[in-house]
């Protein structure tokens, strides 16, 4: 599905991605983990074309994507921070995004799911952070794209919305989609991840299931396993 080869990216003197290779197969939930500054977001943004790599290739379904833009019509992306034009209403924003894609959507279903009806005519500038995140989620999940990328999807969500989110992600997986997630919430990872991609110093340090990670580190507990990796590296 996604193939990344020899990806390099540095910001000034700071090398964030260093010759990174990654293959993500079709179907399943992939969680990208790593300490702060390890390049998770940079990797995702490279796939989305928001960051221009210094070197390397990225292809999706065997199509090279660098300098292309049409392919993004087949990706659903949830950005980390939800901040929208403050003088547009929720329904106007929804209309804009729909116009940009021109594909069938299930927005009504999601509006009902997140209870957004009362907010449809409100200006985005007047919404609370949590509500904005719900709008953000709605915009992401309303299209039926084969690849879903979620950047810190849990931030600011109340427990009910969190449950809905997990259900949505699972449903996507059952529909045979590929879901790529970055997050810091370990319990969320444990609950949902099929496979973990662990980034360290701009490279893939580990790629596999949680069980494999536990075996490798000899830790029973997932959080401890992660901590063990980090400790080993810095010892």
């Amino acid at each position: 599905m996604i193939r990344v080869e020899g990806l390099k990216k540095s910001f000034g003197k700071l090398t964030v991605l260093d010759n990174l290779d990654l293959k993500i197969e079709k179907g399943g939930i992939f969680v990208i983990l790593g300490p702060n500054g390890s390049g998770k977001t940079t990797l995702i943004k490279s796939v989305l074309g928001m960051v221009v790599p210094n070197a390397g290739n990225i292809s999706i379904d065997n199509q090279p994507i660098l300098k292309e833009w049409q392919y993004r019509g087949n990706i659903d992306y949830l950005p980390q921070i939800a901040n929208f034009p403050s003088n547009l209403s929720v329904s106007e924003l929804l209309k804009l995004v729909k116009e940009l894609r021109d594909k069938p959507t299930r927005d009504q279903e999601l509006i009902a799911l997140f209870g957004l009806e009362p907010f449809l005519d409100k200006k985005l500038g007047n919404l609370s952070g949590g509500t904005k995140q719900k709008v953000n989620l709605m915009l992401t999940f309303m299209f039926n794209s084969p690849l879903v990328i979620l950047d810190e999807p849990t931030s600011g969500l109340d427990p009910i919305a969190m449950l809905h989110l997990k259900e949505l992600i699972r449903a996507e997986k059952e529909n045979g989609k590929t879901v790529l997630i970055t997050t810091h919430i370990m319990s969320f990872v444990e609950e949902i991840a099929d496979e973990i991609v662990f980034l360290l110093d701009g490279k893939i340090y580990f790629k596999g299931s949680i069980q494999e990670l536990q075996q490798m580190t000899g830790q029973v507990d997932f959080e401890h396993a992660i901590a063990a990796i980090l400790r080993r590296e810095h010892a």
């Binding site: 989305l48 074309g49 928001m50 833009w69 049409q70 392919y71 993004r72 019509g73 990706i75 992306y77 950005p79 921070i81 939800a82 901040n83 929208f84 034009p85 995004v97 940009l100 894609r101 953000n136 915009l139 990328i149």
Partner: peptide, 13 residues
């Protein structure tokens, strides 16, 4: 509009 720009950048534009 930086964040909104990022949202737009994930669209086929």
């Amino acid at each position: 509009s930086k964040e909104f720009t990022e949202l737009l950048m994930a669209q086929p534009l």
